[in-house]
Computed example of a mutant assay.
Amino acid sequence: MPSAERPSLPSLHATEVPGTGPLVVFLHGLFGQGKNFSGIAKALSPDFRSLLVDLPDHGLSGWTERLDYTVMADAVAALVRERAGDGPVHVVGHSMGGKTAMQLALRHPDLVDRLVVVDVSPVETAGTGEFAHLLDTLAGLDLATIETRGDADAALAGPIPDPTVRGFLLQNLRKDDTGAWVWRANLAMLRRELPAISGFPAGDEAPFNHPVLWVAGERSDYVTPERIPAMRALFPRARLLTVKGAGHWVHSERPDVVVEALRAFLG
């Protein structure tokens, strides 16, 4: 657990999808929220119970001053112990959430039974230009001029032409208690901490020797042959599944394949 010198653990919001079977903890990626996995969790119910976590600086969870994967993993560990005792539980993480999930398994192996890492590797991720562009674009939107969500969508259509991406990002837009539009995500901190988001902390933890399913999108470059040795060093029982036709958001693009894979792996 974190030492006295490290930041206190942020509060985490989580929603439970009921079921009678083992608990599956879902961790989303950058710009996401726990509810992004609602469809997957409902498809697994009632054979599995799911916990959809809002990671720090996203959704309804607390904000922090800096991004730290070890702090994020420890915060998730505290939440799991609160909701599920000493576990163990299954953990599914995508992208940033996948790096958090890997840290959780390495730092708290007693809590994790089976691990699923979706389209990310335990190495520094090159090329954060797209994320920088999206963060800058959202932060640059003058929310005082926005009356409806449709206004925001129209204002973002130029710099972010893909309507699916805009729809995903606009899930972060909400009204506060005064009726003013605000962003759920901590945009300024996330922009500043992009190098940390793209990295992966080097620790002295022992390899995680439980089964790991490593899911990659065929059209994504987050999982490549060059990254396999780093994954195997930390997760020697990892097995790679490449989902045809999918990009980085595998669970959104091919939910049928992901549900089938989770049922087979976690069952």
Score class of each variant (00 low, 15 high):
residue 9 L to K: 01
residue 12 L to P: 09
residue 17 V to A: 10
residue 20 T to M: 06
residue 20 T to V: 08
residue 22 P to Y: 01
residue 25 V to R: 00
residue 25 V to F: 05
residue 31 F to D: 01
residue 38 S to N: 11
residue 43 A to R: 05
residue 45 S to Y: 03
residue 48 F to H: 05
residue 49 R to M: 00
residue 50 S to E: 02
residue 53 V to R: 00
residue 55 L to G: 08
residue 56 P to Y: 10
residue 60 L to R: 07
residue 65 E to G: 02
residue 66 R to P: 01
residue 66 R to I: 04
residue 72 M to G: 05
residue 73 A to V: 03
residue 74 D to L: 01
residue 83 R to Q: 08
residue 84 A to P: 05
residue 87 G to P: 10
residue 89 V to L: 02
residue 92 V to N: 03
residue 93 G to N: 04
residue 102 M to D: 09
residue 108 H to L: 12
residue 108 H to G: 07
residue 109 P to H: 11
residue 110 D to W: 04
residue 111 L to K: 00
residue 113 D to F: 00
residue 113 D to E: 15
residue 114 R to A: 07
residue 114 R to T: 04
residue 115 L to K: 04
residue 115 L to S: 01
residue 116 V to L: 08
residue 117 V to C: 08
residue 117 V to F: 09
residue 119 D to C: 02
residue 120 V to R: 00
residue 121 S to Q: 02
residue 121 S to V: 05
residue 124 E to I: 13
residue 125 T to L: 15
residue 125 T to Q: 14
residue 126 A to C: 13
residue 126 A to W: 07
residue 129 G to M: 11
residue 133 H to L: 15
residue 134 L to H: 13
residue 134 L to Y: 14
residue 141 L to I: 10
residue 142 D to T: 09
residue 149 R to S: 13
residue 153 D to H: 12
residue 159 P to D: 15
residue 161 P to K: 07
residue 164 T to S: 08
residue 165 V to Q: 10
residue 165 V to N: 04
residue 171 Q to A: 12
residue 172 N to K: 00
residue 178 T to Y: 07
residue 179 G to F: 02
residue 181 W to L: 02
residue 181 W to G: 06
residue 184 R to C: 12
residue 186 N to I: 06
residue 187 L to Q: 09
residue 188 A to W: 03
residue 191 R to T: 01
residue 191 R to Q: 12
residue 194 L to N: 12
residue 195 P to H: 12
residue 195 P to N: 10
residue 196 A to D: 04
residue 197 I to V: 15
residue 212 V to C: 06
residue 212 V to Q: 07
residue 213 L to S: 05
residue 215 V to F: 11
residue 216 A to L: 15
residue 217 G to N: 13
residue 218 E to G: 12
residue 221 D to Q: 14
residue 223 V to L: 02
residue 228 I to H: 10
residue 229 P to N: 01
residue 234 L to F: 05
residue 238 A to D: 08
residue 238 A to L: 11
residue 239 R to K: 07
residue 242 T to M: 13
residue 243 V to D: 14
residue 248 H to D: 10
residue 251 H to P: 13
residue 254 R to T: 06
residue 254 R to P: 08
residue 260 E to H: 05
residue 266 L to Y: 00
residue 267 G to Y: 04
